[in-house]
Amino acid sequence: MSFLTLDHVTHHYFSASSYTKALKDISLSIKQGEFVALLGPSGCGKSTLLSIIAGIVEHTSGNVFLENTPIKPSDKAIGYMLQQDYLFPWKTILENVMIGPKIHRSNDPAIRTKAEMLLKQVGLTGISDDYPGSLSGGMRQRVALVRTLLNDPKILLLDEPFSALDYQTKLKLEDLVSTTLKAFNKTAILVTHDIGEAIAMADRIFVMEANPGMISKVFEVPIELRQEAPFSVRKHPKYQMLFDKVWEELEDKEGNPAE
């Protein structure tokens, strides 16, 4: 059964003098627990697509279904991680993490325990009362992950969450996010322009092209790679083969004088 379905989703951006077709006829379906990556050049509308799935941007035509019901904004089912952590600098780490429950006015006393447990799980202990300013980029992004997970979303949207980090931190965090999401059996969509990251983390890769944004090709990541953690995937012989194929696909598309 399909968990998330996009049915001919199209989106336009309007300005006073013209319009642009940002997305054209995007149709895809994702299974429960699956990790997919949207890979493409900048301007192909991949972030817009995430915002549409999150219900933050309203698409101009087509349908989005989550568990066969149309998606609506303010749906608790969606978790969002952005390029930067966007932790609130005036809130402590714990207050930042607990923002979801606070917005839902949840009075569940167990939620605090759960928050601290999740923080521990991502390797952050004894910082609950610190402010984000005193944390490194990698730690902050882990806090953002906990903030998202605490809300217990059905699906996680990752909008290039590692792109602002240095390479080592990025590799470590990829492993952490991947194993954590597997452990909770979460469905996730990762937007990235890093081929390696897409292969290392995802089960399926949707390659997109720009002007208008469309899905040009879908790659299945071989089962051997899916079972490995991202860091070891990069060392697997099949990794390079897939990398070359995806690379070729992207090269073909960039050959267009579109951008």
Partner: peptide
């Protein structure tokens, strides 16, 4: 606007966005 986006993804109302992000910022 990304602060609002984060809050919106948690389903915050406009008043909650104001209280949690806009005003303190």
């Amino acid at each position: 606007p990304n602060y609002e986006k984060v809050l919106k993804s948690f389903g915050a109302t406009r008043w909650q966005q104001f209280k949690e992000a806009i005003f303190p910022a």
